[in-house]
């Protein structure tokens, strides 16, 4: 009875003989606090960590207390170097993403739509995709040197494969009947691409984009470890070499925040631009 009352205030009046407003305020409170539930476990972890560090149970040389890291973060926010690092890494990530995602998108669409292209590229992609992209980092550094281009390229290569495969899968998952509708009505090639293939593949494309930002960050940090003199990855590596662990944790936190922000941004854009994706009727 209690459950019913909370979920459906209007029923509560008849069944539970309880003021509807009380039930309603309980419901809204739950709605308001609901999203905050995700914070519970990270907060508990941080609290335990903080307590353990202060009590001396863990080695603070390796695991400084969260409050110490936060203080370090705060001071770094006012240094010029922090923003240079962040700006550079963001620039590398975005340019690399663009360089990899756009060709990947086009090849994925082409593979999905044209059999000859599918036959030509699918074995190639399947063979190269499982290769860990970090393994070719030395080669990339050799070819492109220590400049910006090597960072763009390593991100782009990783992103390219993921984007190709996800877009391809997206096109293949479009129900054939949608193509039948277009064909029956006499749609031209380009009309079919733009009204059926592209929107139909969007769920796959967006999934690809989501994974790509994660992989892009990973490759970027790896590249900055060994082949850069600025950037968040470089800063983490540098912290190790000077044995100063707090900036390292700040770098890790920044990467985590970036990953979260990108995921949130993509979700937001998706909800805004493609409302039908939230509840696709397939």
């Amino acid at each position: 009875m209690k459950e019913t009352a909370v979920r459906n205030p209007s029923v509560a009046v008849d069944l539970a003989a309880r003021p509807a407003s009380e039930a309603r305020s309980k419901a809204t409170l739950r709605q308001l606090l609901g999203p905050l539930q995700v914070l519970i476990s990270p907060l508990v972890l941080l609290l335990v960590w903080e307590g353990a560090a202060r009590a001396g149970w863990i080695e603070t040389k390796f695991f400084p207390a969260p409050s110490t890291i936060l203080a370090q973060f705060w001071t770094m926010l006012f240094t010029h170097g922090f923003w240079v690092d962040l700006g550079l890494s963001l620039q590398r990530l975005l340019i690399g993403l663009l360089m990899g995602a756009v060709p990947g998108l086009l090849l994925g669409l082409a593979m999905g739509l044209f059999r000859p292209i599918r036959i030509a590229f699918q074995p190639l992609i399947a063979a190269l995709y499982p290769l860990p992209k970090i393994a070719i980092l030395p080669l990339i550094l050799l070819i492109f040197g220590l400049g910006e281009m090597s960072k763009y390229v390593i991100v782009a290569i990783g992103v390219f494969f993921l984007m190709t495969l996800n877009t391809f899968a997206g096109v293949m998952s479009i129900r054939p009947i949608y193509f039948d509708v277009a064909k029956n009505l006499g749609a031209s090639r380009w009309q079919t691409y733009f009204t059926v293939a592209l929107p139909g593949a969007l769920p796959g494309i967006l999934t690809g984009l989501r994974i790509c930002t994660g992989l892009g960050l990973l490759l970027l940090v790896a590249a900055e470890f060994v082949g850069a003199d600025a950037g968040i990855g470089y800063r983490i590596w540098w912290s190790w070499s000077v044995f100063w662990v707090e900036p390292m944790y700040v770098g890790l936190a920044v990467i985590a925040i970036l990953g979260f922000a990108f995921a949130y941004l993509i979700d937001f854009a998706e909800r805004l631009l493609f409302p039908w994706l939230r509840n696709p009727s397939r």
């Binding site: 129900r175 039948d180 509708v181 009505l185 009309q191 929107p199 139909g200 039908w276 009727s281």
Partner: peptide, 30 residues
């Protein structure tokens, strides 16, 4: 246009609104 087909399966485009779906045929057949 010569022909327009209505299928047994669900065939309206999930990525178009009702209005866009309704006008799709006329627009695509020129």
């Amino acid at each position: 246009p010569l022909s327009a087909m209505i299928f047994q399966e669900e065939s309206v485009f999930p990525w178009m609104t009702v209005a866009q779906n309704a006008a799709y045929g006329v627009k695509i057949t020129g």
